[in-house]
Write a protein that binds this DNA or RNA. Structure first.
Lengths: 305, 305
DNA sequence: TGCCATGCGATAGATTTTCTACTGTAAGAT
DNA sequence: ATCTTACAGTAGAAAATCTATCGCATGGCA
């Protein structure tokens, strides 16, 4: 048995062979497989050499199966069908998972990365609830949440740090070019400030300009951080936001940081889920995906009591 | 169908998985597969990630199959058995090949290397005819011969030089230590000479001692060179033989060369086979093996007419 | 309790396999 | 004669696989 298994030909070549027998044309087989004709020719040639016999007769503009190739592929096809069917039987039914997040987290971080999440977990049907309201795991049927704050988040809940909130000031490079660089507190008078519900500006400015800064003359207020960020990108003013939410915008140059100043206020973003989740598999999978996508690999576990 | 086939998991990982299920131990599976434990762990981990489920429970010092893994491997094993059996059915029947050689070539060169030949060509059933008689390719059903002589060997035959005969004198280091070194022709009187059917000694001594050597007082005669070689190894005297036949004995120290003198008599060893062999594949394969094993890689072709 | 053995996890780098882009050849079609 | 189709073959690039090593957890033994 072990000997029998060990003498398997190249399985990759067998796979190519089976596809070619259906098309009797290397170019079409290559298209199905998503490789070049040369790669297909190479694999078939290698298999013929390995087996020591010809599987195809090469005719001008077409291929014909040899008798050996014909009898062989019947069994090879059956084997691959077995594998395919066995693999299909492993796939569980689509699992549902409801995830509650803040609107800013949804729009600035999760949704841009959603294709990766759905590709990684095609069998998980996601429902994303993006609201400032705190949803209840039991009554609102939420399986997983990304919460802003500090642990503990409630009894019977696990909370792992997703990312630390580091508040920074950002603005559009076009706006800075138009209104000039910010070097001193007085320069702030030239800029509108974009406010969200956090109201971190006073504390931030105290830190950025310890010797004092003049209060800006123009302020625009939003109820969500993501709206302030979009306005900053549109050149409407300067916004304060968590560094994590604007990594993409900073990388692409839509936004630049104004100061090196960073503000930490002791509240961060956590992955929160019940100790005994209804859908343990998908919850664990999405937790892991979140952690990985946030760049941490392993979550620091904060026990909640 | 095409979609079904295209969604195959990594076939290499499946192969590793199947082996691990038989051992429930990565190290033992690695041994069977001829790779490291790390490679096995990597493949299994990749498969579990690809399938999105655990195939094994890891316990200290052992593995257990999950229920999913158990049901999966039954089908996977069947698929691989299908492939293996289909591949076996492709292999032609063992091919027969009769090779005619001299007894000395058989015993001093071919038989020590036989394991390598059979391992390289497990589907060739060898019949080795070792005799001083010249066998006929047609009437004696010989497919291949290693002949001593010079071309041409007959009509309708191909002959390629296998190795040149370089006659040297050899003896056992123990005998030399006992009877003293040979510096002059007179020293020969102390040694018995071992003779074979070639009777090269007179010519060899003329070349080794142009000023003359005294005839030894003791001579032992054999009808085959290999017997003379064995007697030399046993310390019965000095033998003349082709350098090619005693390479192994010289390397191991069972024999040493007495003089730097070498005699070439214009007859060498050739691979000889019919132009139209009955078993062209196996004849070509063994010819190639002989040439490679003799260290030439490519044979110098001597046309026979 | 300390030490050793066993056995999987993980990773950076090495090696092998697979693939690509390209050229060549042969045949068919116009 | 020219163009199209289709496989053959190859050098080099890219991807997959493997290796050697270290780490961690557990069990066994003196």
């Amino acid at each position: 048995m072990a000997d029998s298994i060990r003498r398997l030909p190249s399985l990759n070549a067998l796979r190519v062979f089976e596809v070619v027998t259906r098309h009797l044309n290397f170019r079409l087989a290559a298209e199905e497989l998503g490789v070049t004709q040369g790669a297909v020719a190479q694999q078939v040639r290698g298999l013929e050499a390995e087996l020591g016999l010809k599987l195809f007769e090469r005719h001008p503009r077409t291929l014909a199966l040899t008798e050996a190739g014909r009898s062989y592929v019947a069994n090879i096809r059956r084997a691959f069908e077995l594998i395919s069917e066995a693999t299909e039987m492993l796939r569980p039914e689509p699992q549902h998972l409801t995830i509650s997040v803040t609107p800013t987290f949804a729009s600035k971080w999760l949704i841009p990365r959603l294709p990766d999440l759905t590709a990684s977990h095609p069998n998980i049907d996601l429902r994303i609830v993006a609201s400032d309201r705190i949803f209840n795991f039991q009554t609102d049927a939420v399986d997983l949440a990304v919460r802003y704050g500090r642990p503990p988040f409630g009894p019977g809940l696990n909370a792992d740090l997703l990312f630390e909130q580091v508040v920074v000031a950002v603005g559009s490079p076009l706006l800075i070019e138009k209104l000039g660089r910010l070097e001193e507190g007085i320069d702030l008078m030239r800029y509108p400030l974009l406010h969200d519900a956090h109201n971190f500006w006073p504390q931030f400015l105290d830190r950025a300009f310890p010797q004092g800064a003049l209060a800006p003359t123009k302020n625009i207020r939003f109820n969500q951080t993501s709206l302030a960020i979009e306005a900053a990108i549109a050149g409407q003013g300067l916004a304060l936001t968590s560094l994590f939410f604007v990594e993409d915008d900073l990388a692409s140059g839509r936004l630049v940081r104004l100061f090196a100043t960073e503000l930490r206020v002791g509240s961060d973003f956590y992955i929160v889920s019940p100790r005994k989740p209804r859908h343990a598999g998908s919850v664990a999978a999405v937790r892991a995906w979140l952690a990985l996508a946030a760049g941490q690999g392993t979550c620091a576990t904060a026990p909640t009591r």
